[in-house]
């Protein structure tokens, strides 16, 4: 059996399991069997074309499978396969907003910490500050 370690954010899509054991001869087969057992994981591991998302990393016994034989990497009894997310992101593509570049605060970032339920229009208008027993955080303060 191959033990597949599930990262915390995905555990609830895997029956709250931190580890799932499957019988598989390759890494690809192990992941496929995992998603067969826990279908809800599929959308988070594979893209619309059925390819493993490029920010999903698989480590077999601490080695990145991209440096081995990828999906075809053979597995054996007692192996540990770990799913690790690459956390990536960044500002929007394109040129900088002229308002920001010139120091005029864009409406959408004028609000500081905003409440979740506000619509995007409200955010654009500055957002609503969190109140009650919460200490509001004022942007730029």
């Amino acid at each position: 059996m191959v033990a597949i370690k599930i990262p915390t954010p995905l555990r609830r899509f895997a029956g709250d399991n931190a580890k799932v054991e499957v019988k598989a001869d390759t890494v690809g087969e192990a992941v496929r069997k995992l998603t067969e057992q826990h279908e809800a994981l599929k959308n988070h591991l594979y893209d619309e074309n059925g390819e493993l998302r490029n920010f999903v990393n698989l480590y077999l016994n601490q080695k990145d499978v991209r440096t081995l034989q990828k999906d075809e990497t053979p597995t054996k009894e007692g192996d540990e396969l770990v799913i690790v997310p690459s956390i990536a992101g960044g500002a929007a593509d394109g040129v900088l907003s002229r308002e920001v570049a010139e120091g005029r605060v864009e409406a959408s970032i004028a609000g500081g910490v905003c409440e979740a339920e506000v619509s995007r229009d409200e955010v654009a208008a500055g957002g609503r500050m969190v109140e009650a027993n919460i200490v509001p955080f004022i942007a730029g303060g």
């Binding site: 954010p9 988070h44 990536a88 992101g89 500002a91 929007a92 907003s97 570049a101 955010v123």
Partner: peptide, 17 residues
Amino acid sequence: DHPAKPSEFDRQHAWPG
């Protein structure tokens, strides 16, 4: 020099929870 809003790139690379 960009707003505190997630980009499409941010969304594509994010995880739920």
